[in-house]
Amino acid sequence: MTDYRVRAENVRKAFGDHEVLKGVSFSVEKGSVTTIIGPSGSGKTTLLRALNALDVPDAGVIRVGDVEIDFGKPVSKDALRRYRAQSGFVFQGHNLFPHKTVLENVTLGPIVAQHRPRAEAEAEALELLDKVGLTDRRDHYPFQLSGGQQQRVGIARALALRPKVVLFDEPTSALDPELVGEVLSVIRDLAVEGWTLVIVTHEIQFARQVSDQVLFTDNGVILEQGPPAAVIGNPTHERTRRFLDRILNPL
């Protein structure tokens, strides 16, 4: 039996009169990498945020890890809390606490939200900082770090929650070009280690290299989904072909 870490069925979300997600369905297998690509305004970030209820869907059923919610019915705060605890979120703009050190940023969630002992949380945080190459920055503050280093702290912070799936919202879009590689390298390592990842990205070649599944979204729907060799290498929709041609052949 396939172990799905994410299953979404007919997910809908509107902001005012603008329907951003128009009945989206997909699934993510344990230990796999799913990338979501598409033009700006296509709904890809809203879809990712729905998986953590940062944007609570208006309708649809989503299962993340061990928790399933029917968003077409009233949802309790406790159910939302358990749902959000299934995933870790890496934001586009780092979102670190500026007045806390690197180590404090990584341990805050496990200590405050999960009530884990400080010594245990700090020991695990140091292991994660080693994984992302930042052990020597443990006592630094965010303003003392480069953008790439801040994003790697954000990744360690998400992993510290021991999530069933890690969600990345365009993790390199706010970085200077020379810093992109260090963040993508960390994400590649996580993929090799078997973490379940869902990544919104505009890095098409990266998506081609690391993905087990690619979703192409446009105008609130998934137009195309499948392995990268199909969606990126041989897309069937004209809209997908035009998007990829513009990205891969900009001149």
Rank of each mutant, 00 (worst) to 15 (best):
A53F: 03
A158P: 11
F243S: 14
T240S: 14
T196K: 03
I204N: 14
I155A: 05
R241H: 13
D58A: 10
H237E: 13
L126I: 15
R162H: 15
R239P: 06
D245E: 15
Y141A: 08
R162V: 05
L54A: 09
V112A: 01
A113L: 10
N219W: 00
G65Q: 04
V231E: 08
L54Y: 13
D55N: 15
A121K: 05
Q92L: 13
D189W: 00
P39G: 15
A230L: 13
P142H: 05
E178F: 07
Y4T: 03
G220F: 13
I37V: 14
R82P: 01
Q209S: 13
V166N: 04
V180M: 06
Q114H: 02
P117C: 06
F89H: 03
T107G: 06
E182C: 03
E9Q: 14
T34G: 02
V90D: 04
S146M: 12
E68D: 01
D3K: 09
I187M: 12
F89P: 02
V112C: 00
R7A: 08
T196Y: 12
G147N: 09
I204A: 14
V67L: 03
T135I: 10
S185Q: 14
T240M: 05
E19P: 01
I247H: 08
E203M: 10
G233I: 06
G226C: 06
L96S: 10
D245I: 00
Q150F: 07
A50F: 00
D136V: 00
P57N: 04
L145C: 08
G88K: 07
F89R: 01
I232Q: 11
H202L: 13
E68C: 01
T107C: 09
A119V: 11
T107Q: 04
V90Q: 06
A53D: 06
R208P: 00
R137V: 00
L108K: 01
I62K: 05
P117N: 03
L80S: 03
A207D: 12
A59F: 02
V6D: 08
A191V: 09
V28H: 02
L47T: 07
G148R: 06
K131F: 15
L179A: 03
R246H: 13
G88Q: 05
G38Q: 10
E178R: 07
S27D: 15
D17W: 02
P171L: 12
T201W: 08
K30T: 12
E68Y: 01
G43N: 10
G23F: 12
E182F: 08
K13E: 04
H202Q: 14
L184D: 07
